[in-house]
Write a protein that binds this DNA or RNA. Structure first.
Length: 313
RNA sequence: GCCUCGGUAGCUCAGUUGGUAGAGCAAGGGACUGAAAAUCCCUGUGUCGGUGGUUCAAGUCCACUCUGAGGCA
C-alpha cells in the first residue's frame, strides 16, 4: 500500500462526555463531516434515548451512519458498520472533506482504526441458534466443542462467555479456519486511514453527575413517549436494538415488571456501568490523546481538539 | 427518670459455646474481532460507637459513656 492514507479524526469518550456537541463544533472549524460510531444511533425511531443529535444540534454538518437500520430489521453488525463507514469516509474524502468519526462504541471505532478483518467470516443465524440450544441443554457443551475445534480460541475465552463461544465455533465451522486467523490479518497497517484519536475524559464523579442529569433530561424530552410508541408496535423484546439503555428498562415498566421510579434508577445505574466499561475499553488504547474537560474552557477544549485532529502526520 | 432493643464494609444486615469479621446490594478493576448501550471474568481491612476492665485472647463478657428507636412512669 503506497498511496497516501486518508487522514481521519476520531472523537471518542464515555457516554455523556460531550462528544456530540464538540464534534459538531470541530466539524465546523475543520470543514469535516461526521461519521457516527454508535451502535444504537443507527436505529430509526430511537432518538431521544440514544442521544442522537437532532437536526438542530447537527447545525448543518452532514452526519453519516445515523438511521441506517430498523429496530425489527435484520441484525445489524460490526462488519456492516465497517462497510458503511468506509463508504462514507471515501465519499467525504473524495469531496474534499475531513472525515470525523464521533462515538462511543469501541468495537466500531476499532473496526475502522485497527483494521479488524471480517471478510471471510460471515455469520449464520441458524447455526447460532442451534449452538445456543446445545448450550442450554448442556452447559459447558460449547466450550468443550471449541477446545477440540479451535483450542487457541478456547484458551482466550471464558467458558461462560456464550456469545463469544458461539462466534468462535461459527467462524471455525463456516470457514474451516481457526478464529485467530482473523487476528493475524488484522493490523492497523492494513487500513487505508491515518487516524487521530481524541478522547474526552473527566473525573468519575462529574461523569456520573452528568449521566444522572442527562437521563432526567431525556425523560423531560419525551423518552417515555418515544419508548411507548416502540412498545406499542409489539416487537420482540429480545431484539438487539431493544437492549439499549433506557428502552430496555422502560419496556420492563410497560410490562408491569417495575415501577417508573425503579426503571429510571436502573437506567441511571446501568448507564454508569456502561460508561465504566467504555473507559475500560478506551484506556488500553495508547493512540488516544485524552482531554480532561475540566481543564479547559469550552473554547479551549475546541482549540485543543482541533489542534490534535488537524496536526499534520 | 426507669426499662427494652439497636449502633459491625458506601447501604441493609449476619456473626455459632470469647480465638483480631462475612453475605446481599452499591462500588472498583479487567476482557472484548459479524448481538458490543451486548456478553463475560475478578475483587470484601472495616477506628466491629467510645473509654476502661476481666482474659493468654473480646464484635462477642463486665462497668461507665455517647447515640438512635420504642415502651413505662
Amino acid at each position: 500500500m503506497n498511496e497516501k492514507k486518508i487522514a481521519i479524526g476520531v472523537l471518542l469518550g464515555p457516554t455523556a462526555s460531550g462528544k456530540t456537541a464538540l464534534g459538531v463544533a470541530v466539524a465546523k472549524r475543520l470543514e469535516a463531516q461526521i461519521i457516527s460510531a454508535d451502535s444504537m444511533q443507527i436505529y430509526r425511531g430511537m432518538n431521544i434515548g440514544s442521544a442522537k443529535p437532532t437536526v438542530e444540534e447537527q447545525e448543518g454538518i452532514p452526519h453519516h451512519l445515523l438511521d441506517v437500520a430498523d429496530i425489527d430489521g435484520p441484525k445489524f453488525n460490526v462488519a456492516q458498520y465497517q462497510r458503511l463507514a468506509a463508504a462514507a469516509i471515501a465519499s467525504i474524502h473524495a469531496a474534499g472533506g475531513y472525515p470525523l468519526v464521533v462515538g462511543g462504541t469501541g468495537l466500531y471505532i476499532n473496526a475502522l482504526t485497527c483494521g479488524l478483518d471480517f471478510s471471510e467470516t460471515a455469520g449464520d443465524e441458524g447455526l447460532r441458534a442451534e449452538l445456543a440450544e446445545q448450550e442450554k441443554g448442556h452447559p459447558g457443551a460449547l466450550y468443550a466443542m471449541l477446545q477440540k475445534e479451535d483450542p487457541d480460541a478456547a484458551q482466550r475465552l471464558h467458558p461462560n462467555d456464550t456469545k463469544r463461544l458461539i462466534r468462535a465455533l461459527e467462524v471455525k465451522r463456516l470457514t474451516g479456519k481457526p478464529m485467530c486467523a482473523d487476528f493475524e490479518k488484522s493490523a492497523a497497517a492494513n487500513i487505508p486511514y491515518a487516524p487521530k484519536l481524541v478522547g474526552l475524559t473527566m473525573p468519575r464523579e462529574l461523569l456520573y453527575a452528568r449521566i444522572e442529569k442527562r437521563v432526567d433530561r431525556m425523560l423531560a424530552q419525551g423518552l417515555l413517549e418515544e419508548t411507548r410508541d416502540i412498545w406499542e408496535k409489539g416487537y420482540d423484546r429480545n431484539l438487539p436494538a431493544l437492549q439499549a439503555l433506557g428502552y430496555k428498562q422502560l419496556f420492563a415498566y410497560f410490562a408491569g415488571e417495575s415501577t417508573l421510579d425503579t426503571a429510571v434508577d436502573v437506567i441511571k445505574r446501568e448507564t454508569r456501568r456502561f460508561a465504566k466499561r467504555q473507559m475500560t475499553w478506551f484506556r488500553r488504547d495508547a493512540r488516544i490523546v485524552w482531554l480532561d474537560i475540566t481543564q479547559y474552557s469550552e473554547a479551549g477544549l475546541l482549540d485543543a481538539a482541533c489542534a490534535i485532529l488537524a496536526e499534520e502526520i
